[in-house]
């Protein structure tokens, strides 16, 4: 396949950026989207141009590093991560727009690379269960009802990619934050810190400059791991309960 790529190039955090057009040819439909970018970069390097910087690591859809907005959609047309998106979902001759995540809490570092450290700080504010090494009782001391365990797992699947923030018209981190709050708050092990957890995580989320939620649902549509929209309602419930109750 031959494609025209329009990619956001930005030399550094404070440098001005712009869309630059590139042509790539001989793209195989079996390539992943990142392999297509690899191909472009190999060309750019041999030409002596600077290759396009983008984050990636596992290329298995699990580390959450890769993230870019493809034709206006976070992670592109399929509901998966960019590394698991394959070129067969595009047509020969297509023009593809590639942009970084956009949110003031995710400043651009270079080209398609953004700074998502705000997510780490949200987790640090309460996204854990305090269990110093060695202090744990036997794993079977507290049975966990299966559906609680399943709900916890469903929400623990979040890979911290940031697509929810990128897709949200308000750059809100509600889906990410609610995924962790629900994961830990449904478990008996998470109960002692249940109230402070949600309150501190919401406070951290606000402090990082993420927007509020207007319930547009774009985040859940973009989430490659299918974190469900009602999780946000669940977090709101936890938050109101913790502040009022």
């Amino acid at each position: 396949m031959n494609l025209t790529l329009r990619i956001w190039r930005q030399a550094g955090p404070d440098a001005p950026g712009s869309m630059t057009t590139y042509k790539v040819s001989g793209i195989s439909p079996d390539m992943s989207f990142l392999e297509m970018l690899d191909t472009l970069n190999e060309e750019l390097i041999t030409r002596g141009d600077t290759p396009v910087a983008f984050d990636h690591d596992c290329r298995e859809g699990i580390c959450g590093a890769c993230g870019m907005v493809i034709n206006g959609q976070a992670h592109g047309p399929e509901r998966t991560t960019t590394c698991q998106l394959h070129m067969r979902h595009f047509k020969d001759g297509d023009t593809i727009d590639i942009e970084p995540w956009r949110a003031s809490a995710f400043p651009v570092v270079k080209d398609l690379v953004v700074d998502r450290s705000a997510f780490d700080r949200i987790i640090g504010s309460g996204g854990y269960i305090t269990a110093p090494t060695g202090s744990a009782p036997d794993a079977h001391a507290t049975p966990v009802p299966k559906e609680a365990a399943d709900t916890a797992f469903e929400h623990a699947e979040c890979i911290g990619c940031g697509a929810c923030v990128a897709a949200c018209p308000n750059g809100s981190a509600m889906l990410f934050t609610s995924a962790k709050v629900v994961h830990l708050n449904v478990l008996p092990q998470g109960a002692p810190e249940r109230k402070s957890r949600v309150r501190n995580m919401v406070a951290a989320m606000d402090a990082e400059g993420f927007g509020g939620c207007t319930n547009t649902g774009e985040c859940a549509t973009a989430c490659p791991k299918g974190i469900p929209l009602p999780s946000i309602a669940a977090m709101n419930r936890e938050f109101l309960r913790s502040s009022l109750g």
Binding site: I129, A131, P137, H140, T142, P143, H183
Partner: peptide, 22 residues
């Protein structure tokens, strides 16, 4: 043996059976 205890205490959602056990 201690590893599993530690991880469960941290909230690692291991697969469970209907009885709620691992």
């Amino acid at each position: 043996v201690e590893i599993i205890d530690q991880c469960v205490a941290q909230g690692v959602p291991f697969a469970r059976e209907y009885g709620g056990l691992l």
